[in-house]
Simulated scan of single mutants.
Amino acid sequence: MKPFRKLGNLLLSLCLLVACSATNAQVNKPKFHVIAFYTAKNDQAHISFVHEANKWFPLMAKKYHFAYDSTSNWSNMNAEFLSHYQVVLFLDTRPDDPAQRIAFQKYMENGGGWIGFHFSAFALTPSDFPANWDWYHNTFLGSGQYVSNTWRPTSAILRVEDKHHPVTKGLPTLWKSQPNEWYRWEKDLRLNPDITILLAIDSTSFPLGTGPKQNEIWYSGYYPVVWSNKNYKMVYMNMGHNDIDYEHHTNKDLSHTFDNALEDKLIINSLMWVGEGKKTAK
């Protein structure tokens, strides 16, 4: 009987090994896959943010169990490539090729997730980034063209506008951001029923910016900085412009976006929601 007992023990061990391997594979399987597109040219503040993001997100991927890839090849913005990812990030710019734009729109309309940072929403006619993508800037983002910005990059007191949205979970009503160049937009997002404003600049931030030009300092007004469109799994956040030492021509980083526990939580909340959450959070 001993040979049969040994064989039984061996089979039991093999079954346990297979079961453990399957369990480990399930545990280690990423919850979702993220692809970040970037350009990282011309503006050192945006380049700095992209480099920082491509170091920070892989660390968060290990911690929160998602997979992260990045590419500066915008020709990858096609249906076959995007089919391997549940979340797309625009770290600085946007696609300009018509075919790439169509592929991105279809990806979003089919339930894909997206987070855009800072310059990814920029559009101004005339400029190198003209307002020539109506669906993206007017329907998807809802903001229209860029109008103006603060200068220098300055921290702001941000106010949570929707406390029940998954993106703002665990954030205090008021908190201080990292330094950033803040944008003002053509359209009033409060008037758009498809837009959920998640965070805005609190009035205690004013005056915001230091100039030297007076129009670069904001003294009043309503400025949304993070919002979502109810028809898509998307979040836009105006953060993504590090402070840089331009004055002394060193181009050294004077601030980092991913150096603030609450701002990091906002980004992770956003990523987990668009990666795993439902299409809308009304």
Rank of each mutant, 00 (worst) to 15 (best):
K278H: 14
Y223W: 15
I244L: 08
L208Q: 07
L208V: 05
K252L: 15
S228H: 13
D243M: 07
V274T: 09
K278I: 00
M237V: 11
S228A: 15
W227S: 07
M239N: 03
K265T: 09
N238M: 08
A261V: 11
I217P: 00
Y246E: 12
T204F: 01
D253C: 04
I267C: 03
G211Q: 11
D243C: 00
E247T: 06
E247V: 05
T210C: 05
V235D: 02
Y223I: 06
V274K: 03
E216K: 11
K213T: 00
G240S: 03
H248W: 12
H241D: 09
M239A: 06
S255N: 08
G240F: 04
Y223G: 09
Y222R: 12
V225D: 11
F206C: 01
K265W: 03
W218I: 00
S228R: 11
I267R: 01
F258N: 03
L271A: 04
H248F: 15
L262R: 10
N242T: 08
N269S: 09
G275I: 07
D264S: 10
N238W: 01
E263A: 03
S220W: 14
Y219K: 14
E276T: 09
D253Q: 14
V225I: 14
G240D: 02
N215Q: 11
N242Q: 14
D243N: 06
T204K: 09
H256Q: 13
K265F: 04
E263P: 01
T257P: 01
Y246A: 05
P212A: 11
F206K: 07
S220R: 13
F206G: 06
N231W: 08
T210S: 13
V274S: 05
T250C: 10
N231L: 14
G240M: 03
D259L: 03
D253W: 06
N269T: 07
P212H: 11
Y246C: 07
W218R: 06
P212T: 13
M237N: 04
M237A: 02
I267Q: 04
D253N: 15
W218V: 03
L262A: 05
H249D: 14
G221N: 12
S205C: 04
L271V: 08
S205W: 07
V274Y: 09
F258W: 15
P224T: 12
S228E: 12
Y236K: 01
Y236L: 01
Y222D: 13
K279R: 14
K279Q: 12
N251T: 09
V235C: 04
G221K: 12
G211Y: 12
N215F: 00
